[in-house]
Write a protein that binds this DNA or RNA. Structure first.
Lengths: 354, 354
DNA sequence: TGCGAGGGCGCAATCGTTTGTGTAACCTGC
DNA sequence: GCAGGTTACACAAACGATTGCGCCCTCGCA
């Protein structure tokens, strides 16, 4: 009735539990006579023995599992990354514990503490802020950590991210190529490396095209949400900013941008072009389909898991961060700017086709 | 350096570890002198003591965690449900282990076995099929299980689902009200209760309106995916079926339907109206915004977790399944059928506005 | 024949808790 | 002053594995 333990197997095989343990563990099988080992294995199978990972963890202080720390599972950016992580971890015998932080430092601390007390052997963190004492502390204590999607400012915690700078550059190239000169930017939270990095890349890209970057064309969003994107665009418009294109820090902000433009009766792309970032699922089916920078979500997860596994296998090895290539996906949210009518470069009031 | 154990706390407090354990556990605190308890608690706090859940699990054969079994995290239907589960579990001190089955029975068995060996105290399963021996077996062994979104055919495993029948009925009412008489259905996998249930509800609803249900208007999808939805619609069209509206088994199938209609140059809703089911995130921003039946995703998760917690607290209690109410959200994918032109009721070839 | 080496295995401690049982000390009431 | 009942704690045995250590036996070799 009870599920069989190692002791049961040992008894049935006529050996000591220690021997059974060694026989069952490929690492130590060589320490026991080949025939004995085979017998133990046979008995274990016939009894349907499954080792108890809890007992094993208690003894070995390891758990064959890693924590995956993300801001919010309902953000479509993360599920593919998580799947990438899991699919890479799984063949190596590792499991993933997923926790959401909701960008709440307190909740985050509690969650990570909970992961640690469950003896996770490493962390994959998508919820990093540029300054993140908690993570640095854990890293300093020797917890293997790999960052995904975002980085820390200083410290050598390895990260797997998309090539934001290249992505922004090609996006700006695309817009400029269409004839845009006044390109606004919805910057993500400056506490995040992606928010800051894409903002910097945007400024650099403008300069590269000889366009001076007007600070009034940048609106900073407090979070990577649709609501914040909408708010930012409204504030841009209310501030009288003149622009014919918006480079959003990510797709969710771009979605918010759609909302705000629609509210104000501005058609996309006829009046204002919009570019997103990330190419999350379904943005190809939006109205209009969103031009955006595609990042390899799944691959980011895979790569991060691989790096973590590497350092778990060889703690001395210190992997270096990697930058994954991105591609611009041109869809229908970008077009040539409207011919100037009511003043140079300001969004012309073409009614949105609702 | 080492993280403090109960023994450390006990020593510093001058008591036996057993006493410390009882002092720290609210359940047993009454067994120890009040002052002693306070002292132990103070020491524990000052040492930063955190109980080791692994050791506790080993001893108590419980884990304060439950397994959440879903087909695929990247299906936008599930993240909100999962969050609902977590948010309800968390205050009760429980954690959620999330696993994906990819609808692969083998993988599923392995995942659930892994959950069980990690001593999860219960299961919340969104990946149920109507016939599901594995789940019934677990349930028979006494594992508390709550199903979400789907049910089992026979057995009394409690389930939290949306009111599919009512949803389909209102959707059909809506279409008939618009003037549609030839309404096709993209049925989900018949192995799933949702697939079968919605199909049955569709037939019933047609009969209720005095429309005889033409079997040629039903296409069965092997999986709940966009690709299958597209394939099904193509097969419908290729089979010469005449219809002016499509009731899709869920939103993903509806999306596939969009794809196929677009391929064939059929405009939605001008030529064919489409109704989805579930109201997953972003379908309100599709082109055209999808008319669909909204189910309370998050609430389904909350309710399921609550039921599971109930049975964990009182194993004798056997909760009954609940049906959560749904609402039809009318957007722009449904309109009156086109005036008959090239034959009664067949999809008129109005070019899609791409 | 004796000795060293080493293969194969058992012994027992251990990981950090929880919990049944034992046992002092103390109180109460006659 | 003592039986009987609390109260407050300590003792020790678990839970199910892993692992350092040491014993025994066999074998090879001198």
């Amino acid at each position: 009735m009870r599920r069989p333990t190692l002791r049961d197997v040992a008894e049935r095989a006529g050996v000591h539990p220690a021997t059974a343990s060694r026989a069952l563990n490929p690492q130590t099988r060589e320490l026991v006579n080949d025939e004995t080992a085979k017998r133990v294995i046979r008995v274990a199978k016939s009894l349907g023995y499954r080792p108890n990972p809890i007992a094993r963890s208690l003894k070995t202080a390891r758990s064959a599992s890693v924590g995956v720390v993300i801001p919010d599972l309902t953000n479509p950016l993360f599920p593919p990354i998580v799947r990438g992580v899991e699919d890479e971890l799984s063949p190596a015998g590792y499991n993933a514990w997923i926790v959401n932080t909701d960008n709440d430092p307190e909740r985050e601390a509690a969650q990570i503490e909970s992961l640690r007390s469950r003896q996770v052997e490493g962390l994959i963190v998508a919820a990093a802020r540029r300054e993140h004492p908690l993570l640095e502390e854990f890293a300093a204590e020797g917890m293997p950590i790999v960052l995904v999607n975002r980085r820390l400012d200083r410290t050598d915690i390895p990260a797997v991210t998309a090539d934001d700078a290249a992505g922004v550059a090609t996006a700006v190239d695309h817009l400029v190529g269409l004839g845009h000169r006044r390109i606004a930017h919805l910057a993500g939270p400056p506490q995040t490396s992606t928010g800051m990095g894409r903002l910097r890349a945007y400024r650099q890209a403008l300069r590269d095209h000889g366009i001076d970057d007007d600070a009034r064309l940048t609106a900073t969003c407090a979070s990577w949400t649709q609501a914040e994107g909408a708010r930012a665009v409204r504030s841009l418009l209310d501030g009288g900013a003149e622009f014919t294109a918006v480079l959003a820090g990510n797709d969710l902000l771009a979605l918010g941008c759609y909302d705000a433009l629609e509210e104000r009766g501005l058609a996309c792309p006829e009046s204002v072009s919009v570019v997103g970032f990330n190419d999350i699922p379904f943005v190809d089916r939006l109205r209009p389909p969103l031009t955006t920078v595609r990042i390899p979500h799944y691959q980011i997860g895979v790569e991060a898991a691989r790096m973590l596994l590497d350092t778990l296998r060889d703690p001395d090895r210190h992997p270096h961060s990697v930058l994954l290539p991105v591609t611009l996906v041109v869809r229908q949210s970008t077009a040539a700017p409207p011919a100037p009518r009511d003043g140079y470069g300001s969004p012309s009031l073409q009614p949105a086709t609702v």
